[in-house]
Amino acid sequence: MRQLEAFSLGKKFGHPETNEDSLVVMPNLGYAVIDGVTDRNGTRYDGMLSGQFASRTAQRAIETFLLAQGREGLDEQQFQGGEHFIEYLGKAIHAGYVANGALDAVEKDWKLRGGCTVMAALIIGDRLEVVAVGDSGIRINGHDTLQVLKPLDDVTAILRRETWRFFEVQGKPTDECDRLAASMTWQGTRNQPANSITAEDAVVSAIEDRAMAACRQHLPQVPDAELLLLVQHGIAHGQGKFQNVTDPVLGYGGIDGFDVPARYVEIRSYALEDIETIELFSDGYFKPGDGFGVASWEAAFREVEAEDFHKIGRYMSTKGTTPTQLTDDRTYLGVRLK
């Protein structure tokens, strides 16, 4: 290894301890970026919100796994392919539920589960084995990029954008547009607080019509029933119904302590001698850096913020930057081998 650069920053200003991203940096063994899923309801395990718990648990499990490579008597921790590696991480989170006395609860209610994505680059002999679940990314040699973004996020991002624009036209100030759009996106149109403007029948009907029309245009292959479920029930009440199931068009994978279908496990293998640079990043970066290194990726981050601060334009998202927090946690890890 000739050069290593890493950077991670949580989205909440003044509260770096809430960062749900994690890094694994083990030169000559492997590297990973793990992104914890934002907690839905304040559930805590080991004193951490569920997303951070899943992220940190996966981090420790990967470190243990890398240290075990080539050691006798540790067969379960030897690399046996990408699906086995993801199963191993899921078992670590599952064991965490057991240790917290929460297994029965999380088996019955997906809203109580912790979850994370992972992008791992493992050095196994003379190969670089890349294994991923979710929307964190990797760029090899500055051009070979793997990042699987889930169309489901586009649905809730469109819901947020249409809500934001609806209230903007009504003359609401920016902070109010942010707040009302966040409420719709998180809870869905049919779970709004009583007596809130977002619970008024006329408002709900107008936003549902706008969001569904935009979603149909953007994702014409997705059944209306799936779009409507997400629009009406949002991230907190609807999104989990699509995780780690294969029937819905909008299904996606996440590591939450239970089975991850093989279709959601991304695997790549490279000859290590062909690798010059490895760059891993979480989805808090909406645009890749022009070159290798933290400075380049942070420049790209600033460009995105300048163009689309609220994330309702080219970089539409389920969240936007506000006076109290950035759109998302972000993490970058760059390794130059040659």
Rank of each mutant, 00 (worst) to 15 (best):
L4D: 02
F7T: 01
F13Q: 03
G14V: 05
H15I: 03
T18E: 14
T18N: 10
N19E: 05
L23D: 06
N28T: 09
V33M: 04
G36W: 03
V37T: 14
T38Q: 09
R44C: 13
R44Q: 14
S50W: 14
G51Y: 09
F53Q: 06
E63N: 07
F65K: 06
L66A: 06
A68P: 06
R71I: 15
Q80G: 02
Q80P: 03
Y88M: 13
L89D: 04
G90Y: 02
G90K: 01
G101V: 12
L103V: 08
D109G: 09
D109A: 07
K111M: 13
V118A: 06
A121T: 10
I123Q: 14
V131Y: 04
V133Q: 08
R139H: 02
I140L: 13
L146Y: 07
P151H: 03
L152N: 07
A157T: 07
I158N: 04
R160Q: 07
W186D: 03
Q187I: 00
D201G: 02
V204W: 00
E208L: 04
D209Y: 00
M212L: 15
M212E: 15
P223S: 08
A225T: 13
L227Q: 10
L229Y: 08
Q232D: 13
H233Q: 15
G234P: 08
F242L: 15
N244K: 12
G251E: 10
Y252T: 08
G253L: 10
F258Q: 11
D259Y: 05
P261C: 09
R268Q: 14
Y270P: 06
Y270C: 01
F286L: 15
D290L: 10
G291W: 01
S296Q: 12
S296T: 05
E298R: 14
A300F: 07
R302P: 00
R302I: 00
A306W: 03
F309P: 00
K311N: 15
K311E: 12
I312F: 01
R314L: 11
Y315F: 15
M316Y: 14
P323Y: 05
Q325I: 00
T327V: 11
D328F: 13
V335K: 08
K338E: 08
